[in-house]
Write a protein that binds this DNA or RNA. Structure first.
Length: 85
DNA sequence: TATGAGCGG
């Protein structure tokens, strides 16, 4: 499952995000989105996890937590989280 | 080149 991670620090690395998500389950890959104009960190990344239940677990666990002194948001990618389930 | 909500190759 693809997970959208926002409000991440610009100085973070994909390996660090992978480690954070690996604490709650297996992580397939982590990708930080880079801006096309500035070639810099856009401020959000995507995490791919093979197991969906572990993905939801990591989302619920890492969503709203602090990372590098910065608040991060973890949600399902591909489709924005709906307020009504 | 650039910065802080948003969904990428």
């Amino acid at each position: 499952m693809d997970i959208h991670v926002g409000s991440i620090p610009f100085k973070i690395k994909e390996a660090e995000l992978k480690i954070l998500f690996e604490q709650f389950g297996a992580v397939d890959s982590v990708k930080i989105i880079i801006d096309k104009i500035t070639r810099q960190n856009k401020g959000f990344a995507f995490v791919s996890m093979p197991d969906d239940k572990e993905a939801y677990l990591a989302i619920d666990a890492l969503n709203g937590t602090e990372l590098k002194e910065r608040k991060i948001t973890v949600t399902r990618a591909g489709s924005r989280p709906n307020k009504k389930l």
